[in-house]
Design a protein around this nucleic acid. Sequence first.
DNA 1: AGGCAATATTAACACTGTTAATATTATGAA
DNA 2: TTCATAATATTAACAGTGTTAATATTGCCT
Lengths: 196, 196
Amino acid sequence: MQNKIQEQRMREYFIQAAKEIIRGEGMRAISVRNVAEQAGYSYATLYNYFTNIKDLVFECTVDFQEECLEQIDRDSKNLDMGFDRIKIRTKSFMKYFIQYPGIFTLFYIENPSTIAKKHSTIDLINSFLDRVNQQEWDYFLETHYLNEAIIESKKAQLRYNVIGILLFYLNRQFPKTYNDYLQITDNQLSMVLKID
Amino acid sequence: MQNKIQEQRMREYFIQAAKEIIRGEGMRAISVRNVAEQAGYSYATLYNYFTNIKDLVFECTVDFQEECLEQIDRDSKNLDMGFDRIKIRTKSFMKYFIQYPGIFTLFYIENPSTIAKKHSTIDLINSFLDRVNQQEWDYFLETHYLNEAIIESKKAQLRYNVIGILLFYLNRQFPKTYNDYLQITDNQLSMVLKID
DNA sequence: AGGCAATATTAACACTGTTAATATTATGAA
DNA sequence: TTCATAATATTAACAGTGTTAATATTGCCT
């Protein structure tokens, strides 16, 4: 690890390989030998650039977040500020994980190697949905439409509800059909995103 | 598997062993050899009574649900029907999984061997919190305090919110402190369990 | 071209779940 | 009781996992 540019390039090869596997076959297909083969290197080479496989896969999360955010922006452009925009953006957020269940597993199911290590990555994941709608929450605050306590409460409500729905649907096959999932989602978002 | 009584007794040995490990060291410590040793048998013997290790661990869920329900009933006895009773019972439900994080992992994180197989067990897990508060929801319906649509919506809101909070706290160390977790929980339950 | 440092690969270890072959135990008939 | 057979338990083995140490290969500079 003398040449920093070459080192980062090598890391990127492994990260791209891991991303493809996670996107396609999911977290179950992730293994040191699998990722290395996809990257075109031997399995032990991976350890010259990452301390372990968990560290590697969690580095993928920043790229996935970017990609997800791009989809959300596409799906919500030209929309006026307000609850409806949050609703659309949140549904787009959820759609991304429905498309790539392996990425949901990585974000919320998989547990990191060490609890303390790479805490920033986990923090970014935890606050992801909050950041997706940050513009809107700020708008509500500035226009005095909602006060800060209410905003924090609704932000949390949305966060837990959305991840809960995805957890049940993707990890527990509940509800059984996609249509039921869509209906529950719409109902729940409507409950959270309204003035009481 | 000639004598059904002896067979069930053997299964119970393995189930009890698995339960102790899940309660104590968590799902990470579950392995065929580990469970078998705790049960006092060789690892291959397990396969005479269970098709695989996943089937075995998911059989533990019925016992855990019973135990959890007993705690909830203890914590909520002598309470009048109403939102407060749901709140207390739901907090007790959550407390159980905070006490035994391994059981939360088993219930909501771990995925079964086959999707179709043992669907009833998964269904019982999915509906567990609903059943915990079924008495109260029925009471609200009978007394015309809430209509059926509202009840179903609130039931779902509670379900997703509660599991979401536990997922973040137990699997993502968010929030960092137990006190913050308690405050968020109380706030969220108050939001869901009120008349709009 | 030779030597040294950087990097990549193979071999090995301790695990995992699962199955097949073997050893042990229990049961019933002579 | 003895022996054969069925039932059950155990060991050996296989293919997989993550990770580390020893070895092979590459690239660079004198």
